[in-house]
Amino acid sequence: MKAFDYAAPASLPEAVGLLASQPSARLLAGGTDLLVQLRSGRKDADVVIDVKKIPELNEISFNPADGLTIGAAVPCYRLTADAAIQSHYPALVEVASWIGGTQIQGRASLGGNLCNSAPSADSIPLLIALGATALIAGPAGRRSVPVDEFCTAPGRNQLAPGELLVSIQIPAPAPFSGAAYLRFIPRNEMDIAVVGAGASVTLSNGVISAARVALSSVAPTPLFVPAAGESLLNQMPTAEALEAAAKIAQEAASPISDMRGTAAYRRHLCAVMVRRALELAVARAQEIN
């Protein structure tokens, strides 16, 4: 690992200014991806900018009207312990308890997971399913990008030079809605998803009125499959309907073979994991009744 300098700005403007003046800077939140990449030589930095001292990036706030805002640097262990998240976003608690293990969750943030933009990122399919948006700050001010448009290629995303992620905003859950993220890993913990599936479902009088489906590890980016959700609209959540939606998601996938699984196996898993995630999301939507 090459030598670098360290800065810990205390405000967003300071961070944006620093980022603008340091083209080879890297942002550090939990460091669970960045420090591994720096150490293995996959990334370099002249300056590492620690964003954890910026108040806005450390906040969790929820209200029933606006929903949930998660600061980009909030570590997973704070999400899993948050009462509002526990009661309104159980799937988010699950995903935050599955990223790495206990110690990784002491550092890793959903913001970091999003900005690392790995195709296998566990939290992104769920964030897409939940209709989350990314709030970005930069030299030109602030802008919002839907999470389903955020990632552009493996390790790449919509952040322009000088920009940083401030927070992730998730709408308040609709009545009779449920969400789930499920991943397949060969072990029971400490693995990268071979396939991950996020799903959300809203029911109106027992009929699906909204649904979103996204996948991880089956395309160059986490993959939003609008057609899978749309196929469920105005349907009863029957096994056949969920199966059909899962098949649509499977068709959209373009997996590769690597050390974590073959393309054929991943394609097979797409249908299984999406169906199971939809089943769980439906069960959660019905539970609220």
Partner: peptide, 10 residues
């Protein structure tokens, strides 16, 4: 207030 892997902390 939490545990970490100190290899991934500066």
């Amino acid at each position: 207030d939490r545990i970490v892997t100190s290899c991934l902390v500066l």
